[in-house]
């Protein structure tokens, strides 16, 4: 059986700079994998390559047996890869509910005729989308903010909205780019609960970029370490923690707790 995501020797460079080199990774359905590495190691670039923001120079990216390298980002997203961004890319003029509704874009089937002329089918679908959106918001405990502009929410709630939005695209694989950046310890605990929750409820596989080792160790079944665009180690959390190469390149300079 095919793995959910199978990346084979993916490489990319910007100008002369080799950003990602021979990156290979397999993620099975429902797995939680951590991607760690020092700043500038190319972690976000890996995300952008998987989601089609950049086209890999070489290598293959297979999603459930289909090569998605070079597809448009929105196609890849509708094939089942949802993502969040390192520095919260929310739509600043929009309320919280609309964020989640728009993420249903690829599930809308009423077409432009429905959009222009308000056909019964459109009304029915819009109602359904609104309902599922509200349920998602409730799931992430931001439903009481539904009609507020997203910018007026506290930071932690904005992070949750972003994850709710990504979940609305019905992903099989969720890419989380530093979901705890800038969070307080309490918010961090809450985030661990949320990620465990969506993993249990939706059975979604998660690939996660994270700096806080405690967080990664607690959530991930497998960890990949990236240094200068190359994987230097891959394995279970304990192995990674004790791997001398990882300690030298990355962990040695930080407090492992």
């Amino acid at each position: 059986m095919d793995k959910l995501l199978h990346i084979e020797k993916m490489s990319h460079s910007f100008g002369g700079l080799q950003a990602v080199q021979n990156f290979s990774l397999e993620i099975g359905a429902g797995e939680i994998v951590g991607l760690i590495g020092p700043n500038g190691a190319g972690k976000t670039t890996v995300f952008n390559l998987i989601t089609g923001v950049y086209k890999p120079v070489s290598g293959r990216v297979m999603l459930r047996g289909r090569d998605i390298a070079g597809e448009q980002p929105h196609t890849i997203a509708s094939l089942g890869i949802g993502r969040t961004f390192q520095n919260l890319l929310l739509w600043r003029h929009m309320n919280v509910l609309d964020h989640v509704k728009i993420a249903h874009y690829s599930q809308v089937t009423y077409g432009l005729a429905g959009a222009f002329f308000g056909t019964p089918r459109r009304n029915r679908q819009e109602r359904e989308i609104e309902q599922t959106s509200m349920e998602l918001l409730k799931r992430f405990r931001v439903d009481h903010f539904a009609l507020l502009p997203v910018g007026s929410l506290p930071y932690g709630a904005q992070r949750r909205v972003e994850i709710a939005r990504a979940m609305a695209t019905r992903p099989r694989l969720l890419l989380l780019d530093e979901p705890t950046a800038g969070m307080t310890p309490d918010e961090l605990k809450e985030m661990i609960g949320i990620i465990k929750g969506i993993h249990a409820d939706y059975g979604v596989a998660i690939l996660l970029i994270e700096h806080r080792m405690k967080f990664v160790m607690e959530l991930c079944s497998r960890i990949v370490t990236l240094v200068f665009g190359e994987i230097i180690a891959e394995g279970a959390p304990m192995e990674i923690r004790n791997n001398p190469k990882v300690i030298e390149a990355y962990l040695g300079r930080e407090d492992i707790t």
Partner: peptide, 21 residues
């Protein structure tokens, strides 16, 4: 409508809109 509100999404942040299908 959702396709219409997608315009706002593209306006406010095109990358995020793209990633949200």
């Amino acid at each position: 409508s959702v396709p219409g509100k997608a315009m706002n999404a593209v306006r406010d942040n095109e990358s995020a809109a793209d990633a949200m299908t």
